[in-house]
Each structure stands twice: as structure tokens, then as C-alpha cells.
Design a protein around this nucleic acid. Structure first.
Lengths: 114, 114
DNA sequence: CTGTATCCTCCGAGATACTG
DNA sequence: CAGTATCTCGGAGGATACAG
């Protein structure tokens, strides 16, 4: 691995940490159009349960991908929003999409759309 | 999720499948400079054991990332090499590296190099 | 509404020994 | 050399009920 300085490995590790697991990608995806409340996320992400949603949101917050804002209303509401780093993930996803589409075309022609 | 057609989700899924897990990224990284034999991979990837190496290589081959070539020599040797799709992952990794480095600069300044 | 607390299951992955 | 066969364990993730 000639051209592979240590900070590259760390950087890829950060990126992987940020969106691996079963749900993080869906949560980030759901937040790209804009902030959402806990219950909206729960409704918009099929099959997730509150325990997992809560846990993943805490992970994402700890990793600086999502920020959490409590509105002091009655009843209380909590909004989640991507941080600048979170929004910046789009370019990374775009290049994953590019690769994925080319890969499908290359090795499973005819299955472009599922 | 307005701008999120189904084939995008599939494409990202393909990309994730291709390199998640504990070892796939290291294997791909080890193969970027060129083809390598089983035992070379085993030696070059610290702490991997033959069972995991074998399993991950089979996964990668099934996903069209790696191709396996048996040389009919004595003793037998087997070479693994990235497919064109495999080599094409570099751009994706580069954009992950970009994001990771910016992310580190943004949310953990001073820890650029670990 | 926004989460926690428990309990449980399944599988990724390590250790070690063995085979053609 | 290039793998496979077992055994084992921890942790990711699901189901459900409960709490502030």
C-alpha cells in the first residue's frame, strides 16, 4: 500500500464509522431535505423502532453528523438536523452512487433498476 | 426524500456491501497496487486469519470486486486481482478520504493525524 | 411526544486444528 | 500453498413494555 499515509486510513475509518450500521444511512438520507422531529423520522423510516432510532441518533450526534435541538414547548419537541459535515456527505454519497450504478451496469446488466 | 430514486438507494447499497465488514477494505487496499497470492495477502494484512481471508475473498468475488485465478503449477498458486469495478472504487475512496479529512478538521481540530 | 429498560436472538468474527 | 471444519463469544439489532 504505497500511497496510503496514516491519515488516509483514519479518514476512511471516520467516513465508515459515520454511516455504517443498519440505519444511519437512512437517517442521514431522511435529514438531507431538512430538519425533522423524532416522531417524523420514526414515521419516515420504515421498520425502525424507537430504541434503534434513539441509539443511532446519539451515535450520529457524538460523531458530529447530526445536531439535536430541544424546543421548550408543551408538549416538548426535539428537532434533528444535519451539521455542515453531515450535509457535506452528499458528495461522498454521490460518488458511491456513481460507482454503484457503473458496477451494476458492468456486472449485472439488465438489473439497472432493481 | 425527494431526490432519491430507487436505483440510487440500490447503488449505495451495492457500494456499502462491497466494502463493509472488518476486512474487505484492507483486502481491496492491498490489491490496489496489483495482484497478490493468498499467502501474500495473509502476510500483508495484519491479524487476519485464513478463514476470514478466504470468506471475504469469496464475498468479494461474488460481488464482482475481485477475480480469482488458479495457476496450474506445482505447488498450485492462486492469484487474486481487482476487477475493473474493483479498481474503479478508488474514486469513491478518494471522496471518502476528502470528507473524512474535512470532517476531522471541522470537529476535532488538532487531531488531524491521529 | 420523546425517549429508556429489559430481554432475547442471531450472526460476524476470533482461535485452533485439520486437509488436499 | 491454499484453504476448510468446529467451537466459541460478544455485540448489533429486534420486540415489547414502560417513563417523564
Amino acid at each position: 500500500m504505497k500511497t496510503c499515509p496514516k491519515q488516509y486510513v483514519l479518514a476512511v475509518g471516520d467516513a465508515l464509522n459515520a454511516f455504517t450500521g443498519k440505519w444511519k444511512l437512512f437517517i442521514i438520507g431522511a435529514l438531507i431535505p431538512g430538519k425533522q422531529r423524532f416522531s417524523e423520522l420514526e414515521k419516515n423510516i420504515p421498520k425502525i423502532n424507537p430504541r434503534m432510532l434513539s441509539k443511532e441518533l446519539r451515535d450520529l450526534e457524538a460523531n458530529g453528523i447530526v445536531k439535536r435541538k430541544v424546543n421548550d414547548s408543551v408538549p416538548v419537541s426535539v428537532e434533528y438536523e444535519l451539521t455542515p459535515s453531515g450535509y457535506a456527505m452528499r458528495e461522498m454519497f454521490d460518488s458511491m452512487i456513481d460507482w454503484g450504478i457503473k458496477h451494476r451496469a458492468w456486472c449485472m446488466p439488465g438489473k439497472i433498476a432493481g
